[in-house]
Every structure is written in structure tokens, then in C-alpha cells.
Design a protein around this nucleic acid. Structure first.
Length: 280
DNA sequence: CTACCATCCTGGTTGC
DNA sequence: TGCAACCAGGATGGTA
């Protein structure tokens, strides 16, 4: 679910309430998510101060004052909500509650259980399984036209599959892949090795700009995603092609009834949306 | 190396 | 109204 903009939004909101606070109590309500919740989490986290909240790819990193990190991944359906302690009772699929020193609760809820919680030393993060194979952050300088071109040239897979590969670039999921390709005017089934230098440059800028706009809008809510206070993101109202099959794309003034509008295809088992008139 | 598929799991929507 | 099929923002591992 949550792609980079959604995770970034959650991180920023977490930072506001959690930075500088201590964990008073950690309660795991269920151990069974994609990777089992670490044992004895309360013992590990109790009285630890939260010194930094960061994001790497789609992972939320809660840095503690013992040089360890609590890692949370939202998977497809994970949510984090922030509420006054004891404000509400637990709801279905709550997996972890962190009670902070100022009586704030941070609750991780994940119906499909594709998310994960990990606890690891900061020193081990880079070489850890979860992080070792991640590509550059799309909003960093290392993700540029030259880098993208070099890496697309090596690949025969459709460009849409390539930009969703977290080893090439992190944070781009199914929604923003379609949106970025539209923005760049590139057909999603174009083979990576056939992408031109000019297209690669446009694609880098498109990925950046789409992600930044989505962050500004607090992410996109299609079904599960919510901000930490329960509000919806609203970037979905700015989609040009995603989830708009048969409708006019963001730039078309043509009549969908005549042209067929936005097309939907399946790539790698996932839906892709594009406009055959604005993408070549 | 790539392409393709299944898998983890639940819940909402669609279609008969 | 009931029920089954299908679909969903992610990531991984297996197989051909």
C-alpha cells in the first residue's frame, strides 16, 4: 500500500509527537505478521528515548538512545495511529502499541499482516537483509538521469517493472510508477533497454515531482491508508491515470467515449494505467 | 539474467 | 440476500 509519500507522511507526523519522548511501555498484541514481532519488545524498548525518526525506502526507522532502531514496514495495509493513551480500546488487527512518556499511544495496525516490525543495532542496518539490496532514494542526488540510464540499459524488463524494483530505486510502488510514467510521457511497456537518454532524464524528474506532490498532499488514500490522526491523504484526487480506466487522463481534452480514455493492463500481476495518446 | 507464478493474509467489491 | 470470485498500495522466493 503505502509507497514513499505515505510512509514519509507518517514519519513526519510521528516525529512531531515522538521525538525526544521515551517509551514507557511496548505491548505486542500479536506476534504473527510477515516477520514475527521481536521477542521481549517491552524489555528492549522500555525507558528508551526516541532520538530520531527517519525513513529509508518504505521503512520507518525509530532511532533509540541505545543505538538501536525499531523498524516498521506498513506492507500493503498497515496503518499507524496516534492517540491519547487509553483513548480507545484495541481494535481488530492492532499488533503493537508503544505508550510514550507523555501519555501518547502509537499503535500499529495491519489487517493483511504483510507489514513487519524489527529491532536491530544501528551499526547492522546497512548490511541487514532488509536494507542491503536497496537502491538510491529517489529524492537524493544519486538518483539522476545518468544513473537511471545506466541501469535501464542493462535490463530487458518493461520500464514500469524496472522502476518498481527497489534495487533500482526505492519508494516507487504501483500507483506512483503509473503516474510518473504518464508525467514523463513514456509507455509503461517500453523495454528498459529501449528507453532513450531524454526519456530517462524526464523519468527521473517525473518520479521526483510526482513523489513530492504526493507528499505535499499527505499521500494517497485508496482504501487502507490513513494519516496518523485517521485523516485521508488526498493525492488520489490528482491522479492522472491511476484507477482512471476509461476516463480522460490528466492532460487529455479528448472524449473518452470516442477514444477509450485511460487504458488498464496487467504487468507482473499488477495493474498499470496509461494514456495511449500522451505516452509513447 | 529474466519472466512468471505463488505466497504471506484479510476485507471490500463485483457479479451471478 | 447469499455466496463465490476477484481484487488490492509490498516483498520474497521458487522455477523454467
Amino acid at each position: 500500500m503505502p509507497e514513499l509519500p505515505e510512509v514519509e507522511t507518517v514519519c513526519r507526523e510521528l516525529e512531531k509527537v515522538a521525538l525526544g519522548r521515551s517509551v514507557e511501555k511496548a505491548r505486542a498484541h500479536s506476534m504473527k505478521i510477515r516477520i514475527a514481532v521481536p521477542e521481549n519488545l517491552n524489555r528492549k524498548l522500555k525507558n528508551r528515548k526516541i532520538v530520531k525518526i527517519a525513513r529509508r525506502a518504505k521503512y520507518i526507522l525509530i532511532h533509540l538512545d541505545n543505538a538501536h532502531i525499531l523498524v516498521i514496514h506498513l506492507g500493503m495495509s498497515g496503518r499507524i495511529r496516534i492517540e491519547a493513551e487509553g483513548q480507545k480500546t484495541l481494535v481488530k488487527h492492532d499488533h503493537l502499541t508503544l505508550s510514550l512518556s507523555d501519555k501518547t499511544d502509537i499503535v500499529f495496525n495491519d489487517p493483511r499482516r504483510f507489514g513487519l516490525i524489527a529491532y536491530l543495532p544501528e551499526k547492522e542496518m546497512i548490511k541487514h537483509n532488509l536494507f542491503a539490496h536497496l537502491g538510491p532514494e529517489p529524492l537524493s542526488k544519486t538518483f539522476n538521469a545518468k544513473y537511471l540510464m545506466e541501469n535501464l540499459t542493462k535490463r530487458k524488463t518493461p520500464v514500469k517493472i524496472a522502476i518498481m524494483d527497489q534495487e533500482l530505486v526505492v519508494g516507487v510502488g504501483n500507483i506512483y510508477a503509473s503516474e510518473a510514467l504518464f508525467e514523463a510521457g513514456i509507455l509503461p511497456h517500453t523495454l528498459s533497454c529501449n528507453v532513450t537518454t531524454g526519456q530517462a532524464a524526464r523519468l527521473v524528474e517525473a518520479i521526483r515531482s510526482v513523489l513530492k506532490k504526493a507528499i505535499k498532499a499527505g499521500g494517497s488514500t485508496l482504501r487502507d491508508y490513513r494519516r496518523t490522526n485517521g485523516d485521508l491523504g488526498y493525492f488520489q484526487h490528482q491522479f492522472s491515470v491511476y484507477d482512471r480506466e476509461g476516463k480522460a487522463c490528466g492532460k487529455c481534452s479528448c472524449k473518452p467515449a470516442l477514444t477509450g480514455g485511460v487504458q488498464k493492463i496487467t504487468q507482473g500481476g499488477r495493474s498499470t494505467f496509461y494514456c495511449p495518446r500522451k505516452q509513447i
